[in-house]
């Protein structure tokens, strides 16, 4: 599904990713943990094609082809989804309108027919009930005045509707209280499937109590420095990142 080979990327001439190697097979959930500044968020942006990052070396093989040169919107239509750490606000645009625009833009790019309004509404209803997203929230402008929990639930709602092949969750636990964390995690878990890979980026172990990964990778100074099972997260929780600090930028 996703195979990253010797990925180097820089921003403003400063190298952040210094040879990332990572394989996430189809249907698996992998976690990436690491200290602040280790390049976790940069990795999520480079994978999703954000402007401003120069990939200087290496490959990102997604679904069999290298997507390094592919524009962000095409990666999205191909099935790459990023749940943002800080979801953006769009005043005056109802959440529902945004969801429909996004879903239909992706369908159009894939050569599929646009959804009819009743079909779309039915899908939103099913997905939003699971995530405890109210109709009132869907009518509000996208993320404007949303609480931290509402924003993150809205991210997962979008993920549910867009049905990506690869979901990258960037610090999805940040800003969530324990109840909100549970709702969001349940939402994510319900989207686990043999056809979908997930990359869960987090600083803390607590998210991984709820979303149990198949593998845990430790990132430091722009590289994956260690890979293990779920127990690796517990070890990090106990010991901290001190062992890896030497390698930090």
């Amino acid at each position: 599904m996703l195979e990253i080979k010797n990925l180097h990327a820089s921003i403003d001439g400063k190298e952040i990713l210094r040879g990332v190697d990572l394989v996430v097979p189809t249907g698996e959930v992998h976690a990436i943990m690491g200290p602040n500044g280790s390049g976790k968020s940069t990795l999520s942006y480079v994978l999703s094609g954000r402007d401003g990052y120069d990939v200087t070396e290496g490959e990102i093989i997604f679904d069999g082809s290298d997507i390094v040169e592919m524009p962000a919107e095409e990666r999205a239509a191909a099935g790459v989804f990023l749940a943002f750490q800080y979801p953006l606000e769009i005043p005056g645009v109802a959440t529902m309108t945004f969801l429909k625009a996004a879903l239909n833009a992706q369908r159009k790019a894939r050569g599929e027919a646009e959804l009819t309004t009743p079909d779309f509404i039915r899908r939103v209803k099913v997905a939003s009930e699971k995530l405890n997203v109210s109709q009132e929230m869907l009518r509000r402008p996208l993320n404007v005045g949303f609480s931290g929990g509402e924003k993150k639930r809205n991210e997962i709602l979008q993920m549910a509707l867009l049905e990506p092949k690869l979901a990258i969750l960037d610090e999805t636990d940040s800003g969530l209280d324990i109840d909100a964390l549970r709702v969001v995690s349940e939402g994510v878990n319900s989207l686990r499937s043999p056809e979908r890979s997930m990359l869960v980026i987090t600083h803390y172990q607590r998210l991984l109590d709820h979303i149990v990964p198949d593998k845990v990778h430790v990132m430091s100074a722009g590289r994956i420095v260690r890979t293990g099972g779920p127990e690796l997260a517990l070890e990090l929780e106990a010991k901290g990142y001190a062992d890896y600090a030497g390698e930090a930028a």
């Binding site: 954000r50 524009p71 962000a72 990023l82 996004a102």
Partner: peptide
């Protein structure tokens, strides 16, 4: 804000229009 829209599959023109 633009990147957020692009990441959801909108083209930059669609994003600005939205």
């Amino acid at each position: 804000q633009l990147f957020y829209c692009l990441q959801r599959g909108l083209s930059s023109e669609e994003a600005v229009a939205l």
